[in-house]
Design a protein around this nucleic acid. Sequence first.
DNA 1: TTGATATATTCCCATATGAGAATATAATTT
DNA 2: AAATTATATTCTCATATGGGAATATATCAA
Lengths: 116, 116
Amino acid sequence: MARAATTTDAFNAVAEPWRRQILDILASGERPVNDLVRLLGLSQPQVSKHLRVLREVEAVDVRNEGRQRLYRLNGHALKPIHDWVKKYERSWSERFDRMEGVLEELKKEGDMGGDE
Amino acid sequence: MARAATTTDAFNAVAEPWRRQILDILASGERPVNDLVRLLGLSQPQVSKHLRVLREVEAVDVRNEGRQRLYRLNGHALKPIHDWVKKYERSWSERFDRMEGVLEELKKEGDMGGDE
DNA sequence: TTGATATATTCCCATATGAGAATATAATTT
DNA sequence: AAATTATATTCTCATATGGGAATATATCAA
């Protein structure tokens, strides 16, 4: 089997840096495609293709306004990512690093110490 | 160009569900490969291959212990994901949904109202 | 040394990719 | 209707994938 489709879920969709940038831009408000083209410096077809992926995982919504298509962030799609990674928050805190260090020390002392 | 390598960064590495599960298991402590094989129900080579990817993005560390290789979580690699997705936290809160609704209402009223 | 156990690597393959180029569709203006 | 503007789709291609099977490597045991 090949790798899962980028449209499988938000994890796959946002693995691509341009798509994260698109979401970052849309975070500040609705935008037509050409705004994104200019802001990102990508070709228009590339932007449209990335937007399609984001649409399929429902990370963005679209709305027609004359001949423009206005894209808007839909953050709900990102919640599963947040929920998953949040569990690891502790593991890069200073407190956690200190704790791990202490555990290492205790372990070493244990290995050395007792007479049995 | 093809899609970026899964070893490019943590975003790509954890796009694969088995790799997230591996990290979830390692979150509870160091484990030899065969533990993961049993717990996941994957073939041993598959597990080793997923572990290699996680090693390359430094989401796990390894340690030799006799003929076993003990893998351990290294949460630091996940911090960039957390930092990125955290910015969107507001966007799925109830308060935010309510706010968006209110903005829509205000917009409609504006469109209807004035005589110019 | 031979055998057993634990893990990693290699080879093969079907499939999905992201980029570029060309083209299609749709709405608006003239 | 013709031209223009805005966006989406299709095509081709090099490349990376994840799974299965086979095999290599390393450590320990007899």
